[in-house]
Write a protein that binds this DNA or RNA. Structure first.
Lengths: 217, 217
DNA sequence: ATATTTTTTTAGGGGTGGCTAAAAATGAGT
DNA sequence: ACTCATTTTTAGCCACCCCTAAAAAAATAT
């Protein structure tokens, strides 16, 4: 049985492992988890002992199949709970994270599967992230970043990369939500800012914001 | 902020405190929590430091107002989650306890209150226990133990005292459920057993079982 | 009233998961 | 190839929550 702390490490290594590099550095983990490298070393040894991670001194960490499955299970629970909170309990998408962070550690297979059914087997959470199935598999939607799109083209906002409080609150304030149809009106090469149009209004967004918006093909 | 362990102690002291005695003994707590008296002494000191309990060496423990409120909040969450599990996720009443035991520690005021509303502000959990309101208050239903009732009288099963797995499974097996109309057919003074009748069948129950069944007046 | 039993506390210790500070290994620049 | 800066690990320590064994207080019996 994995502890709460172990699960948080697995989740973090899983996420960092997705971003390109094979082995994840202890420093990267420490930063993400807001801890220290020395604490990470300790925990990573423990994960290796439990056959959840592969660890070679000074050479970073990767997940074993078991570790990857466990991480995917935690992420599955996190995202299912987010759907529950938003769709059934009137949470907004910028309020769900902290609570889902707690709920994701509840241990009960029946609970997860019944919750999944109760929600109608959702495929994506409120931020557009895919929900892994029981085997840890999910299909990545072929969305593209808005900066890659041409002026005049359009698409539907299906995913936001940053799901921090500040960013989601900004989106709320500017009336941007998942599912919105968006048309690219103008791109400014000088600072990378864009002018985009939704059904309801026209918005000027900075490059930093644009980096986090993904539209369906 | 209270830890998981502290909350479990508060809950236990709260329950034991209800049963008559003013101050609860460390041994009683240890037994209920399946721990040792020495561990209880340590924790109880900690609770006193945090102004959650009153503790005098060798004289037992009682809760402060703050402790009582905190305990009631945990119990409120436990019972609300039980309702959720049974009514929305197809759990049976003998499956909910372990999961609710985990869910009761999730910290989010909004979560509890929205869940309460989502469930239609239930007043009792699946075992007939009352759900405290936000202020920790609840009204005890004036149910009486079946052993106190006379042969020939009848009532509705509204509460079961023991909510252990074994007992609830026994009730399932004998087709007894909360809300059943029950008529007392016979009482046997020799061993305290009873013969009772529901809508569907006639059952012989032992004194040990009868002790745990409460009917509405 | 005193001896005995039971209850409760204290003392000391273990595992988890975190920290700081110092040491060791790695990798970059010359 | 070797020094220097950075990264990572080790060593030692702390808080939490539990334990066993021994001591102390309280309750009970004679």
């Amino acid at each position: 049985m994995t502890t709460l702390s172990e699960e948080n490490y697995l989740k973090t290594i899983y996420h960092l492992g997705q971003q390109g590099t094979i082995a994840v550095s202890t420093n990267a983990i420490a930063e993400k988890i807001e801890s220290k490298a020395s604490s990470v070393t300790d925990m990573v040894k423990k994960l290796a002992d439990k056959n959840l991670a592969n660890y070679v001194k000074y050479q970073g960490v990767s997940l074993t199949n078991l570790g990857r499955l466990t991480a995917a299970s935690v992420i599955r629970k996190h995202r299912l709970w987010e759907v529950f909170l938003v769709e059934k309990l009137h949470f907004s998408w910028d309020e769900v994270h902290d609570v889902a962070e707690q709920l994701e550690h509840i241990k009960s297979l029946k609970l997860v599967n019944e919750l999944d059914a109760f929600l109608g087997f959702p495929t994506h959470d409120p931020h557009g992230d895919p929900i892994p199935d029981k085997n840890g598999n999910y299909t990545l939607s072929k969305s593209i970043n808005i900066l890659q799109m041409e002026v005049g083209s359009q698409g539907v906002l299906v995913h936001v990369k940053d799901s921090s409080d500040v960013f989601l609150k900004y989106l709320n304030k500017t009336n941007l939500a998942l599912g919105d149809a968006i048309k690219i009106m103008d791109f400014e090469p000088f600072d990378g800012s864009m002018i985009i149009q939704t059904n309801s209004n026209t918005i000027n967004i900075s490059k930093e914001v644009a980096k986090n918006l993904y539209l369906s093909h």
